[in-house]
């Protein structure tokens, strides 16, 4: 049942670092996070790793395993061959703090830039009535566990540090989509700001965010592309633009 596992774990900080070879026992049915914990308890007492729930629910244990952005607690070791060496590194789109822990504050900054939901004036607690079909689209986006794997894999910032200031990233595009599709939110300039302030136009829909999302949120198909279409309604569609000048379309829809 037990097997011996060969690992390469990146250790270091923001100045230096290297992959270190480790050999460790592994049991049937274990996930990468179990293995890291064993390494911690037996060989590297100060190996830094972030985790919390160990059930794929909190989005803390994001790292790159064999080059792929993944949750360590959702990666079964049985997915790797007997002879394979598993390489584990921190996220590569964010500054590293130590070992497998990175500084993800970029994401919290972006969260702050998106205006919160606003209920219609005068609506009191207990009064909202919403149909299930009307909340379902937004509910999909609220499944997000903020693991930031999508942010990490998005080439717009992963490969271009300088874009960070003008690009909110897929996690926050689904947040904007969630609010724009919310049946009651009254802030109606979200399409315009998505394009002009949050950098929706940077996305070239290459879908890596969707590929890595552990919650299987269809980030591109259900949020980014619909938002691009909504932006087109407002900004790139002369017919609809004219229509909206004549009558307030939003109210009608």
């Amino acid at each position: 049942m037990a097997r011996t596992l060969k690992l390469r774990i990146w250790r270091g900080d923001d100045k230096t670092g290297a992959l270190q070879d480790v050999t460790v026992e592994a049991n049937h049915g274990e996930v990468v996070l179990d293995i890291i914990h064993r390494v911690q308890a037996t060989q590297m007492g100060d190996l830094a790793v972030r985790w919390n729930c160990k059930a794929g629910k909190c989005g803390s244990c994001s790292m790159e395993i064999n080059g792929k952005p993944r949750l360590a607690c959702m990666t079964q070791i049985s997915a790797y061959g007997e002879e394979e060496t598993i390489t584990i590194t921190p996220l590569r789109a964010f500054p590293v703090i130590k070992d497998l822990v990175t500084d993800v504050s970029y994401n919290y900054k972006k969260a702050m830039e998106i205006p919160a939901m606003e209920m219609p004036a005068g609506m009191k607690p207990g009064e909202p009535r919403m149909q299930q079909v009307d909340v379902e689209r937004s509910q999909e986006f609220r499944k997000c566990i903020e693991c930031f794997l999508c942010q990490n894999t998005c080439h717009v910032i992963r490969d271009h540090e300088e874009n960070k200031k003008s690009f909110a990233g897929p996690r926050f595009f689904i947040r904007i989509a969630e609010l724009d599709m919310h049946p009651l939110d009254i802030l109606r300039n979200r399409k315009k700001t998505a394009q002009e302030e949050h950098g929706l136009g940077f996305c070239n829909i290459t879908k890596c965010c969707t590929e890595v999302c552990p919650e299987h949120i269809k980030i591109t198909d259900n949020a980014i592309i619909p938002m691009k279409e909504r932006v087109a309604d407002e900004k790139y569609d002369p017919v609809r633009w004219l229509g909206s000048k004549i009558r307030r379309r939003e109210e009608v829809l």
Binding site: H155, R158, D159, F202, C203, N204, C208, E211, V212, Y236
Partner: peptide
């Protein structure tokens, strides 16, 4: 841009579909 997920792209700069000509994609 990018060739595959988590594979670094070769370009030094990237503006996506924010400028011409790619902005046409919005149509």
């Amino acid at each position: 841009s990018p060739p595959a997920c988590a594979v670094a792209e070769p370009h030094a700069k990237y503006t996506g579909e924010t400028k011409a000509p790619l902005i046409v994609n919005n149509g």
